[in-house]
Design a protein around this nucleic acid. Structure first.
Lengths: 256, 256
DNA sequence: TCAAAAGTGTTTCCTATACACCCATGA
DNA sequence: TCATGGGTGTATAGGAAACACTTTTGA
């Protein structure tokens, strides 16, 4: 039995050939590693003009009293997507999740002091018009001022926010932040909250219309008590993720 | 003991409070799940005008004879990045890897028929000027015509290629495909091979210069036997990933 | 009729592609 | 001097931000 540099062990195979463990074609390992694997979710929603994340207050050490991302251990028969949907079903009604995508996997051996745990983070988005009932130890927190957070969860939240901000620019993810129908000033408000900077409703309208992301419903909302022209109602044409601005640059040359 | 819907078990806690397992704050699990976790790499290089991926031919079932991605089981003390670097050190000299980033994690319970294995895939890039010595059962294959591949590895390769193509548009990843110094026609060749469509050298030059990605070295290569003006040599200014085109759209308004 | 909010027209800017033309070299 | 490949100048197109102006409503 030969052990070489990087934590890999070669065992002699029946036919005399050396089979590197951890490569493949390998038999069941004699000592399965005791890795834990969990799915976590960065669930974001625009609430009160702020981009908020759903957090969960830890009652026990480690990190007692700190806030953490919802999620939990991966079950045996399910994949990560099913797992995180299941976990969230108890915190946020799954029907409220308009979009869910995988973010990244954290694997620092020290990220959980108790035992080795890998975490795969997901990004979930909840439209602004719903207010899911959440447990008492769970709450929404502005991503602009995160509370003291457990493990590496704060950096995962920032990672999710970065992903959302980038995708608002070249996809139609906006559909997952907005209610089914909305006025342009509402929508520009959601974009402003998510991006952290001003978004002019007039230009947003033209950009999204040109890209075919939104369309007029034909209806409008009556103007408020202080008057003003009634706002037209729009909707997203697709309510699943589409890349609407694929070849921003280095696009293929025109064929004719 | 109460069992509820989604493979979660609540156990009564000392203080009478119910602690959901699989949430956190939990004690060590009584029966650690026997998940395997492996790191895989989609190592890409431009070879002979084609975008190629490094594959490994399986000698044993399952998928005997099919090609698979290099990688292997995660070690106890290392994170996924260190693990894949270690695995690759035996196939491609690590110094040849100009860039490495995490792609995604696959978790379908059926993806490996032997036992439950999660795989985190990485994207690695090798500059076109090196020709790493690889084992005999390992070879480069055009991503345009993949051979019969094991597990879900073919779709992981496509995922890596998609990522590379997208990032060529808004980052400086090109540095990881090109040698330290290159002419513009060489570079446009690399871009053409990676993107799968024509890239005009003249425009590429101006785009990358304006973005500050490349600069002239001041030197040039003598023209070939068939004459022609000698080509200027360029280099990338940064040899680590930079986002050079961040706010393609929906950029923050001008402050003044 | 005035204030307020929504929507349109138009300008300007910037970036990227297309393409004609000029430049430097070898034979 | 001519073919060849590299490089520059310039036209064109398109998208998006900025902003003045118009429209539609309530009081």
């Amino acid at each position: 039995m030969v052990k070489n540099g990087r934590d890999r062990v070669d065992i002699p195979h029946a036919n005399g050939r050396t089979v590197p463990i951890g490569e493949d074609g390998l038999p069941d390992p004699p000592h399965p590693r005791r890795f834990g694997h969990e799915a976590l979710a960065v669930v974001l929603q625009i609430r009160g003009g702020e981009l908020c994340v759903l957090l969960w207050r830890r009652a026990l050490p480690p990190w007692e009293g700190a806030w953490s991302l919802p999620g939990g251990r991966l079950g045996t028969g399910e994949d990560l997507g099913a797992s995180i949907r299941g976990q969230l079903a108890q915190k946020v009604d799954v029907r409220d999740l308009a979009h869910l995508e995988q973010l990244e996997t954290r694997s620092d051996p020290e990220r959980d002091p108790r035992h080795r745990t890998l975490a795969t983070a997901y990004l979930g988005l909840v439209p602004a018009d719903v207010d899911p009932i959440v447990p008492v130890d769970t709450g929404w927190h502005s991503t602009a001022a995160l509370p003291a957070m457990a493990f590496d969860h704060a950096s995962i939240v920032r990672s999710g926010r970065r992903r959302l901000r980038a995708k608002l620019g070249y996809t139609n993810v906006g559909f997952a932040l907005a209610p089914p129908e909305f006025t342009m000033s509402q929508l520009s408000g959601y974009y402003r909250s998510a991006l952290g900077h001003d978004v002019a409703a007039t230009n947003l309208r033209r950009v999204l219309l040109r890209r075919g992301q939104i369309e007029e419903t034909g209806r409008s909302v009556p103007s408020g008590r202080s008057g003003g022209r009634p706002a037209a109602l729009f909707r997203f044409r697709e309510r699943s993720l589409q890349i609407t601005d694929e070849f921003a640059v280095l696009r293929p040359p025109n064929v004719p």
